[in-house]
């Protein structure tokens, strides 16, 4: 069920995604961490408390914990992190089969003496590697910058927040895997991935505008994990983490099973 050659080949082909995504995401997180001291000042936090609650919720901002590095990173930084990593993960997942069909390489790859399930899982393993490396580098960048220019009281909480965001991103990848067998264009796969993550983000952001529409957040994967709980040090949202992981695994294995039985488009 795992083929090293397919894994390494996919990893080689994903090297630019790995490089660009890791650099962009790590730099972005470093920038957020770098600004930490400026935005965690008391006067700024007081100002935030005057903002509409709906706006604060849209960007995961909890003024009560904004006076800390952890609280600041749990806000907009976390949202941006999941947005970018989630889009990349969904794109990789949804392009697993679609890209091969779109680039007409499917005839060469899927007639190799490697089972379809092994091809699918080996490609997914390389995607997991790319997403994991990007997530680890981003976490490291934010912590290193935080230690250098700000006050990081609880590095473990920051790492846990990024780990939570990583799991949510994997859930987006799972949705991509579930969809990829039905797609025959890489552009469609990319558009759907970006669209799905943005819609998910929007549903979560707008759900806080009114109590009457709060339920729409249930349709968003961003709603799976409340990282402000981690930032406060209350607990780790284990259920959200578990559901995220299950969505990833269900999408991955469901997509693999569908692919193993479907015709491959010419």
């Amino acid at each position: 069920m795992f083929h090293k050659g397919i894994f390494l080949n996919e990893l080689y082909r994903s090297r630019k995604t790995l490089l660009v995504n890791s650099i962009v995401l790590a730099l972005l997180m470093a920038v957020f961490a770098g600004f930490s001291d400026m935005v965690t000042r008391e006067d700024f936090v007081s100002l935030l408390k005057t903002y509409p609650q709906s706006l604060l919720e849209a960007f995961n901002i909890d003024p009560d914990i904004m006076g800390t590095f952890e609280g600041w990173m749990a806000g907009e930084a976390y949202v941006m992190y999941v947005l970018i990593l989630g889009i990349v993960a969904a794109m990789m997942g949804s392009s697993t089969v679609a890209k091969e069909v779109d680039q007409h390489t499917s005839e060469a790859v899927f007639t190799l003496p490697v089972s379809r399930k092994a091809v699918f899982l080996s490609k997914a393993a390389s995607h997991l590697m790319v997403i994991t490396v990007s997530a680890l580098l981003s976490t490291a960048a934010s912590l290193i910058t935080g230690f250098a220019v700000a006050h990081v009281a609880y590095p473990g909480r920051v790492a846990l927040m990024f780990a939570g965001g990583y799991l949510v991103s994997l859930a987006f990848a799972g949705v991509g895997y579930a969809a990829t067998s039905f797609l025959d264009s890489d552009r469609t796969a990319m558009s759907l991935s970006i669209g799905f993550v943005l819609i998910s983000f929007t549903l979560n952001a707008f759900s806080g505008m009114s109590e009457s529409i709060r339920w729409v957040a249930n349709g968003s994967l961003f709603h799976l994990l409340d990282v402000t709980v981690i930032a406060r040090g209350d607990s780790f949202p284990a259920v959200g983490a578990l559901v995220s992981a299950l969505i990833y695994l269900a999408g991955l294995f469901g997509g693999m099973l569908v692919f193993s039985k479907r015709d491959i488009a010419a």
Binding site: H104, L112, A118
Partner: peptide
């Protein structure tokens, strides 16, 4: 269905090479 062991015994040249 999918039979990779059998494909190992076959050499395939597709009409459109990519």
């Amino acid at each position: 269905g999918d039979n990779p062991r059998l494909r190992r015994r076959i050499g395939y040249l597709p009409g459109e090479v990519s």
